[in-house]
Amino acid sequence: MNDFYIRELDAMNDSELLFEIVEHENIVFEEASVGNWNIKPFAKYGKVFAMLHKKNERERLVSIIEVLRSFDGKKAYLYGVSAVPEYEKKGHTRKLLEYVVSYLESNNIFIIELTVSVDNERAIKIYKKMGFKIVENLQNEYGDNEARYLMRYQKYSI
């Protein structure tokens, strides 16, 4: 497990990994992928965290979470939470999610939201174990006629 680690990706220095994220998301999320035009702004003005695996002197993507912060600085939104297929179901994304939540809390962000397909029972179960709650059923959120849950993690009542 020592070859696995988490780090924030940099817009300038991690271009190759950022574009690998887009390729991965194109498969996993299809048209909902962050896309080539958006991945660099996510890394510059938000945060892109990745669990990486050092293999043959090369960093390989394991799991990814992109983070946006609200203008008032009180909320964060998680986007593109996923694992690369060969690393799925091994707990890496959960560990990355724990890291990101801890990072956000250490930066005084105590409300964290994300959306998830109502059919993605595995992800919903993980989010609930982490303390996320379903707060709204969103119909047609992305114009795709798909129902999604808005889930929220809130450390303190405000």
Results as ranks from 00 to 15, higher is better:
1 M>Y: 01
4 F>V: 05
6 I>V: 14
7 R>G: 02
7 R>S: 04
8 E>N: 06
8 E>M: 03
10 D>I: 07
10 D>S: 13
12 M>I: 14
13 N>P: 01
14 D>F: 07
14 D>V: 09
15 S>P: 01
16 E>Q: 15
16 E>D: 14
18 L>R: 03
18 L>P: 06
19 F>T: 05
20 E>T: 08
22 V>R: 04
27 I>A: 09
27 I>Y: 12
27 I>M: 10
28 V>A: 14
31 E>R: 11
32 A>P: 02
37 W>S: 12
40 K>S: 05
45 Y>S: 07
46 G>C: 07
46 G>K: 02
46 G>P: 03
47 K>L: 10
48 V>T: 09
49 F>G: 03
50 A>T: 02
52 L>Q: 02
55 K>Y: 13
56 N>S: 12
59 E>R: 03
59 E>V: 05
59 E>L: 06
60 R>K: 13
61 L>E: 10
61 L>W: 02
63 S>N: 01
64 I>V: 15
65 I>P: 00
65 I>F: 04
66 E>D: 06
73 G>Q: 14
74 K>F: 13
74 K>M: 11
75 K>C: 13
77 Y>W: 08
77 Y>P: 01
77 Y>C: 04
78 L>E: 06
80 G>I: 01
80 G>E: 03
81 V>K: 03
83 A>D: 03
84 V>L: 02
86 E>N: 04
88 E>F: 00
89 K>I: 01
90 K>W: 00
93 T>R: 00
95 K>A: 00
95 K>W: 00
103 Y>F: 14
104 L>T: 04
104 L>E: 04
105 E>W: 07
106 S>T: 07
108 N>S: 11
111 I>N: 08
112 I>F: 13
113 E>G: 14
114 L>G: 04
114 L>H: 05
115 T>Q: 05
117 S>N: 10
117 S>D: 13
118 V>K: 12
125 K>Y: 11
128 K>P: 10
129 K>G: 10
131 G>W: 07
132 F>K: 09
132 F>Q: 09
132 F>P: 05
134 I>G: 08
135 V>M: 12
137 N>E: 15
138 L>M: 13
141 E>F: 13
141 E>I: 04
141 E>S: 04
141 E>Q: 12
151 M>F: 07
151 M>Q: 12
151 M>Y: 05
153 Y>Q: 09
154 Q>E: 15
157 S>L: 14
157 S>T: 11
